[in-house]
Amino acid sequence: MTAAVETRILRYRPRQRLVHWLGVGTVLTLLVTGLALLWPPLSFIAWGGVGPTLHRVGAVLFMALPFAYALLNPRQTRELLVEIFTYDREDWAWLKHFPGYFLGHAAGLPPQGRLNAGQKLHHAGTFLAFITVSLSGLALWFLKGSLGATWLPVMAMLHDVSMLAVTVLFVGHVYFTFVYDALPAMTTGYVSPEYARLEHARWLEELTPAAPAVETPETDEPTEIVVQQA
């Protein structure tokens, strides 16, 4: 065995990582400036109208981001949308083990593709909440003053519930990232073969169809197995 050899697998390209972190930034901005309207300890953010203005700037970026990405990468976007709303038998089998996975047990679970069933649910939920939070937010923004005392609270309730969905999904997403040491995938863009084998065995197989799992190349350079997809 050659000790210095390192194999890494490309998981997210720079543009995907950029979109991801911009998304995180806007969601956190929206969450803090939004909660500032409800929670007195944060009310100072709203002084002079700063909070509500930031919320609107954040909202524009937040809504523009997915559209910008979809325009630049139409095929990947379509594939992603199909992927997150398609669940096969292995996904359901995996979901039955979700409580164990939540508590830190990934070994022995049904092999998963590029996204595991939990990630698919997270992405699908985020996609749906994106729509409701945007529509209700636009109503609160542009129809304030004409919605009237009955419908304003209805829109605010929809916004609140969407906010809840976004936040709980966000918290869960961060949770699994740190329980399973998945952060490098989105910072460096690469994951280790051990990680891929444990978490996304089917994906790993698809990437290296000819080879039996991962070959360790006979060089001292870190090599990459370039993913021919999203």
Partner: peptide
């Protein structure tokens, strides 16, 4: 304590509250 959300403006049946300087 006012966060400037402006909800009272819509809620009041008499159209009394207004927003001035974000509060």
């Amino acid at each position: 304590k006012c966060s400037g959300c402006g909800y009272c403006v819509d809620a009041c049946p008499y159209g009394i509250p207004e927003m001035v300087d974000g509060h």
